[in-house]
Design a binder for these strands. Structure first.
Length: 430
RNA sequence: GGAGAGGUGGCCGAGUGGUUGAAGGCGCAGCACUGGAAAUGCUGUUUAGGGCAACUUAACGAGGGUUCGAAUCCCUCCCUCUCCGCCA
């Protein structure tokens, strides 16, 4: 959520920066704000008088005056009049405030000053590329789902029977590989300073609103109709919300968490895309990194977060590039985002495997996550950041494709061999 | 699912419908005392909105209601805890 004060004080700047994403009009919002403040002024004057009357009556009765006295009677009369007036003003003010809240919740974050301006993903900027030397030169590369199915470690057909399309069942070495990747990634991120958490993955509406998935993107998440609970689309939501409505002592910052969770996405509107394989599933596993930091450090924390995610790809010797998203492609809550894209040889392209964002105080404001500096008056909003470290299913896809050998087997990346207790995946591996 | 208890400030915990934004304690900060510290004493210490400011408004789980006045009374909802049942 944007700061209404910032909008009020520098509307042109806010408007311009929003427009760098797409078209937004903050005029209605500013008018509402103006009306609200006028109403608020009137209302609080009336309430001040009402409080005064309340005190006066109390004093007089305590002093032994008869409650039926004319003096008290007229005060009561005035009190009743004020009550009538307030009963008209209050609902108006409430209604306008709710309207303003609705508008504010629908506004995306302001892109950071350093975010490249652009309309769509075609204007994203490549900032780094790593591991060219690991790109396989074999011309007969197979897509990962074909390798996985021929090795008998992935099964899509039976998963349709159990659930729907866009689900997978991992079998034997496939399941073991997934589990090894999870363990490997967690071990690395814990060593990098992240405290592991296993949060709830059924989460309430408030939590999704705080991180920005709601109200705008309701159709992207699975909802449990009988309860106010949703399936988490990413561990970002439960982990960030661990600290919702809290005031953290400044000394506690920064807080780093990593979490392994399944993630659930409806993938509405992507019907034709990535229909095969592990790339776009309704359910997938992810290791998420979440940081709560002092605002003055969030930029360097962001760089470090990206490096923590990159370290996994490097350890697995998977070629990737780093993309900085342009203003038009930036996620709703993000001020600045780097995507890591891993090389998928069968497609001959890089595909997103991690997205590392700095949300500044946007989520903290929506979720009221604040910190207090000793001796300083008031509180400040923390900055939140998060990134995948990494998406596990896509990592498996990348390994199957980049490590496949001409005979149809798949080498196990060296860093994983001790986890998987083998160095090659062969047909019939169990 | 059945029965009961409860939700108050960073934490614990009082609270009679009338100057209670809230006693007391802990914690924290400052000052005093000390060579220094402990102990002790004094002072301060919620958050958010509006106003240049003086100041003012709101908030005791949430939302309604009664009243001149509600943390306190009434209604609805939510949540937590305990016991029983069921269950991995």
């Amino acid at each position: 959520m944007l700061d209404i004060k910032q909008i009020r004080e520098t509307p042109q700047i806010v408007q311009e920066r929003l427009n760098s994403r797409s078209d937004y009009d903050i005029q209605p919002l500013m008018q509402l704000d103006q009306q609200i403040r006028e109403l608020e002024g009137m209302r609080s004057q009336l309430q001040a008088r009402s409080n005064e009357i309340g005190k006066l009556v109390g004093q007089k009765i305590k002093a032994g005056l008869n409650p039926q006295q004319p003096e008290i009677h007229s005060l009561r009369e005035e009190g009743n009049q004020i009550k009538t007036q307030l009963s008209e003003l209050e609902p108006q003010e409430k209604d306008l405030k709710a309207q303003l809240e609705t508008l504010l919740l629908a506004l995306p974050n302001l892109p950071s000053a350093s975010t490249p301006i652009g309309e769509s993903e075609t204007e994203n900027v490549e900032v780094n590329r790593w591991g060219d030397e690991y790109i396989p030169q074999n011309p007969d590369i197979l897509p990962h789902w074909e390798i996985g199915e021929s090795l008998g470690i992935l099964n899509f057909e039976r998963s349709v029977k159990v659930a729907q399309s866009r689900f997978v069942t991992l079998i034997g070495a496939g399941a073991a590989l997934e589990r090894a990747l999870i363990q490997f990634m967690l071990d690395r991120q814990i060593a990098a300073g992240y405290v592991e958490v296993m949060p709830p993955i059924l989460i309430n509406t408030q939590s999704l609103t705080a991180t920005g998935q709601l109200p705008k993107f309701a159709e992207e998440s699975f909802k449990c109709a009988d309860d106010d609970l949703w399936l988490a689309p990413t561990a970002e939501v439960p982990v960030t919300n661990l600290y919702r409505n809290e005031i953290i002592a400044a000394e506690e910052l920064p807080i780093y968490h990593c979490a392994y969770t399944p993630c659930f996405r409806r993938e509405a509107g992507s019907y034709g895309r990535d229909t095969r394989g592990l790339i776009r599933l309704h359910q997938f596993n992810k290791i998420e990194l979440v940081k709560f930091v002092h605002p003055s450090t969030s930029e360097q924390e962001h760089q470090q977060l990206v490096q923590n995610a990159e370290a996994i790809l490097q350890a697995l010797q998977l070629p990737y590039r780093v993309i900085e998203l342009c203003t038009g492609d930036l996620g709703f809550s993000s001020a600045k985002t780097y995507d890591l894209e891993v090389w998928l040889p069968s497609a001959g392209t890089y595909r997103e495997i991690s997205s590392c964002s700095n949300f500044m105080d946007f989520q903290a404001r929506r979720g009221s996550i604040r910190f207090k500096e000793a001796g300083k008056k008031g509180t400040q909003f923390v900055h939140t950041l998060n990134g995948s470290g990494l998406a596990v299913g896509r990592t498996m896809a990348a390994i199957l494709e980049n490590y496949q050998q001409p005979n149809g087997t798949v080498r196990v990346p060296q860093a994983l061999q001790s986890y998987l207790k083998r160095d090659v995946l062969t047909n019939g591996a169990s």
